[in-house]
Design a protein around this nucleic acid. Structure first.
Lengths: 350, 350
DNA sequence: TTGCCACGTGTGAACGTTTACATCAAGGGG
DNA sequence: CCCCTTGATGTAAACGTTCACACGTGGCAA
């Protein structure tokens, strides 16, 4: 059989190879897998047959027998989001380097999709899962803990969660950002927060308050606007601040997308950045390098977290690590660009 | 067996379900797959057993038996590139909607990786492949034509290629861009091209020349600078143009990334856009919506192409389409934003 | 009553590997 | 010269499904 009009053909199997090489299928398999325990002569004949017949082992059969697929899954809320793109890229690279393929799952941030992703581990489509969620509910944690295969969660979980976990101390990141604003001489610092109830929104707000407190500055609820982590959201939030006529000399946005919206809104109102208002974001997405002005931000090391998560997962899958659950926390880094530097306006790259 | 210290447990199989429900495994399978031909009573008992035992069918076994994995692969040169992100997102959505999962392969634009991706179809890890390449060589085409499973190529191939193919007429896109510049009154239009030898670079140059010719304008080789499709490349290319002291009233960049580099370089030299020089890019990446000025561009409908490719592939896989190879060409669209509109500088969204 | 059909279900053979175990030949030490 | 070891290979049983086929039962028409 050959491929005709869209119908696929059956591949050549190990049986035909064995026949052609004049050995048993077991021998062929041995040559392929542990080519040490077989004579050089046999090995040559088998390789010959394989080449002649164009044999390729069937992956489903191997997976079934070996109980392993050499594929890992990455479940993220949104493929389009630059933060997750960086993460996905790092995971893909790490997986590929270690001989694994990557299955991409988009959860759209919905709890049911997340749970579905975890449950589908029982199907054995993949050997393990890296999952990234914005909200943490009891049910989610329960599912993670009783998953049918190794799982690594990216993002802050409850402290008692018994799951391999890579997180970033984004509260500390927020402190870093706000402290930087204060160091620049700002005193009236607005905060554009992301979607209420999500873990990042909570911890960034906490960081904002802590930094103010540590510097003896009061917390003014009216300087906090809630938004939704999107550029449009940041744009509107800044609009609300302007409309309210609040006197503000700096804006800290809970992520870069919103910060870019803020910049855009300020530009439309002819408010100069950084001369009149200083702006800082969070995430370090590529867009921040080319905005006008370029955006000061706090890197949450998405790629780094992806890489680490993949390493943890693969160590677990291969059995290189067998202990209890682990937790890795990465430390955010301040990246200073034009939007927050008053004494120097042009041509600076972070 | 249960999961202990990272060791995975064997899942419950159809045999146990059958035993518990007091039927044969065939019946369980029938209930699961074509639940019409079995009595309601049996069906109930089977579902009961499944629920009690928490049974989930093993995907490898199903794939092996059915000769189909319900997974498709997408091979792209670079996951980080916004163009491919949009494409991947659309493919993922389409696949997911039609009950398929997505395996992501990064080829890094290397021919050998591309060929490896096509060849690995023989392994039957996936039921089909969508592949996206920047260069088209004979060997690549040969591999595509003799692939072991359905393949859809995104990007222009040679005309005689017998492969399902989704392409965009990017020469027409380039004409669109340059015509727009001419319509704005520009006469000295520079062209920042991408990596020489790639298909997109060739066709965009062709479009640039054709548009000039159609409008009776001469082609000046000195107004063409070759670059590499990156922002930094565009930045340097613009630098070269400025250093050469060429008198230019417009720049057409072969993609948005380079266009953003061009904008950046112009800003550093205090050349105003669009007042002094008009700039147009190509691709319609998100960054172009937030740059200063926002970037006029030609959308090549990456998402749309991804969606179509996925539909073609799935129709082929499911047997919904059985004919000869097909070719779909999408038509680029001009998106006018600030960087090319002289009579109106601020607050315009494309 | 007989024959036929439809329907629900069980039997068993695939699907293409891997691997424990058996087998066999050759070689070496006693 | 025999026995034991060693190494290469074959045999056959998994892995967990699906599905063609066979079988038995009951209903209905002739």
């Amino acid at each position: 059989m050959t491929k005709v009009g869209g119908r696929t053909r059956k591949g050549v199997t190990i049986v035909e190879v064995a026949k052609r090489a004049g050995v048993s299928t077991a021998t062929v398999s041995r040559v392929l897998n542990n080519s040490d325990k077989c004579s050089p002569e046999t090995r040559r004949r088998v390789y010959d047959a394989i080449a002649k017949l164009n044999y390729v082992p069937n992956h489903s059969a191997q997976s079934l027998k070996r109980q392993a697929t050499q594929v890992i899954a990455l479940a993220i809320p949104d493929i389009g989001n630059p933060v997750y793109v960086g993460m996905a890229k790092a995971v893909q690279e790490t997986a590929s380097r270690r001989g694994y393929r990557l299955l991409l799952i988009s959860t759209e941030g919905s709890l049911s999709e997340e749970i579905y992703a975890v449950r589908s581990l029982a199907q054995r489509v993949v050997d393990g899962l890296i999952i990234c969620s914005l909200t943490v509910r009891q049910q989610y944690l329960r599912e993670l803990e009783r998953a049918e295969a190794p799982v690594v969660a990216i993002g802050r979980l409850l402290d008692e969660a018994k799951v391999d976990n890579v997180r970033v101390d984004s509260e500390a990141g927020a402190v870093l950002a706000v402290q930087h604003l204060i160091d620049q001489g700002c005193r009236k610092i607005a905060f554009v927060n992301g979607t209420l109830g999500t873990v990042p929104a909570n911890s960034r707000l906490a960081g904002y308050r802590r930094a103010l407190f540590d510097n003896g500055l009061g917390f003014d609820p009216e300087l906090v606007v809630d938004s939704d982590f999107t550029m449009m959201g940041g744009y509107c939030a800044m609009g609300a601040l302007l409309d309210a006529g609040k006197d503000v000399d700096a804006v800290f946005a809970a992520n870069d997308a919103m910060a870019l919206g803020v910049l855009r809104r300020l530009r439309e109102s002819r408010v100069r950045v950084p001369e009149d208002v200083v702006v800082v974001g969070m995430d370090d997405i590529d867009e921040g390098r080319i905005s006008t002005p370029t955006l000061t931000t706090v890197s949450l090391l998405a790629g780094e977290r992806g890489r680490i998560a993949a390493e943890l997962l693969l160590d677990r899958i291969t059995g290189a690590f067998r202990g209890e659950w682990r937790r890795v926390t990465v430390t955010p880094r301040l990246i200073i660009r034009e939007s927050s530097v008053r004494y120097m306006v042009d041509t600076q790259e972070g």
